[in-house]
Simulated assay, not measured.
Amino acid sequence: MNPSANGWIDKFGSLVKYHDGRYTSFDILFEDLNSWGFVYGINTGFPDFITPEHEFSEDEKAKINLLTALYFTLKIAQPQTDFQDFLEKIFQFYETLEVNKVSFLGKLFSGSKTSSKLEKILDSRVYLEDNIISKTFNSSITNSLLFIDVLLFKRYLMHAKGIKKHAQRLEYLAINITYHALNSKRKNKKDKKLAQLLASSLTFIDGDSQKFDNSYRNQLLTNDDLWEKRYLLKLACLTVWEDGSLEFMESEFIQILGKDLQLDAHTIKNSLAHVSNFINSNKETIPFLQDQNMAIKFYDSMSRLVNRLILRNKKRLLKELSGSAELVSLLSKSTVRDLTKEEKKKVQTQLLDIFKSIPSLAIFLLPGGAILLPIFIKLIPTLLPSAFDENRVENEE
């Protein structure tokens, strides 16, 4: 399955139907979403019934996990619902939340099927920005508060009235808790990155207009939803985490928050322990823990973008490359030696002709798009090896 290509939701539907009985309670589903990092907004895993066509990026994992979470939330509540009914219900849900707005380009390249329109909506939920240029320059591009969508959908299935207002309330609590959690500890660079990521993930409220006083605690005391409480506690634990710090496990802020949420000591202790284990197991891949210099960050961000564009347009690119033996030969040569100035010019000209025929690769034709070409040339033989197998120039050393 390729979550960056059109039709991935229908493909998901064809796979998930064989696993409809996997989750009999939200508790079990929550534990899996937790282990995949989805609850924390840090997607490191995904369901084992999904077979990737390529190594998934974090945003692709986020899309799969979001759809999985929404689907099984509905199946737990309404076991007889089929996949098409699920798609319609999810579409209505996002329509009620007024987040079903798709960009002009999204409308241009999406079909009329509910699943096609939903693909664009999920894209807009996963990505922090709605244009491809801004995604290029963000090192952390995925919405870190996606689990709120799942909590809202769970509530929506019971009573849809007032769901938008409740969404605002949940985000208000989330951003206040993270703000006060950060202020409860000695801040570092990682904390600033996390705060920026969480603030940029807000959808239903304006983070800049919030008053960060203790009044949020009054709303915590009146919240009777167990899963919202557990989520807010997890978010706080993530925020106060410190590598190898005993103070983390004994955080006074977490203990007070746990009491406000009316959660028992065992739940609080387990949340702290799970966050610590999760981060220690995945710290090499968690974006906000990375401290790269700007040049590396810029290159990595653009590489991820080009990687995604190649995989998203895999079939079209293979078709175009199959009709250009000279280009394939030159790209193959570029993997083992530097091309001459004349060869580089030929590659650039022929690639630009291909980009003109594939609308979603139009970014390469925009002013400044040429800086992405070297990355494209470097990645394409690796990502589309079938186009080069017969023409690859082997290293003669």
Rank of each mutant, 00 (worst) to 15 (best):
Lys135Glu: 07
Ala370Gly: 11
Ser116Phe: 07
Leu182Met: 12
Asp260His: 09
Ser134Glu: 13
Ala273His: 03
Ser140Asn: 15
Leu263Tyr: 00
Leu152Thr: 09
Ser112Cys: 05
Leu118Trp: 06
Ser251Tyr: 01
Gly369Tyr: 10
Lys89Ala: 06
Ile163Asp: 05
Thr44Pro: 03
Asp123Arg: 07
Asn138Ala: 10
Ile310Phe: 02
Glu250Arg: 04
Pro385Met: 07
Leu272Gln: 08
Leu372Ser: 00
Leu87Ser: 04
Val306Gly: 02
Glu342Lys: 10
Ser360His: 11
Lys346Ser: 14
Ile268Trp: 01
Thr267Glu: 09
Leu331Gly: 08
Asp10Ser: 06
Tyr71Arg: 08
Leu152Gly: 08
Ile76His: 15
Thr24His: 13
Ala77Asp: 13
Val99Glu: 00
Gly106Ser: 11
Leu151Met: 11
Arg217Gly: 04
Lys117Ala: 05
Ser144Ala: 13
Leu194Met: 12
Asn176Gln: 03
Thr96Asp: 14
Glu250Gln: 04
Phe56Pro: 02
Lys190Ser: 14
Tyr127Arg: 15
Gln350Asn: 14
Asn282Thr: 01
Ser35Phe: 08
Ser301Arg: 14
Arg125Phe: 00
Thr203Gly: 00
Ser112Pro: 03
Leu105Asn: 12
Leu66Asn: 06
Gly45Trp: 01
Asp191Ala: 09
Pro367Cys: 15
Leu331Phe: 08
Glu342Gly: 06
Pro381His: 05
Pro359Ile: 14
Phe93Gln: 05
Leu263Trp: 04
Ser357Lys: 09
Pro52Val: 06
Asn6Ser: 09
Pro287Val: 15
Glu60Tyr: 11
Gly41Ser: 10
Ile296Ser: 05
Ala174Lys: 01
Leu238Gly: 02
Asn176Val: 06
Leu366Lys: 11
Leu15Gly: 06
Glu129Asn: 08
Gln350Glu: 14
Asp27Phe: 10
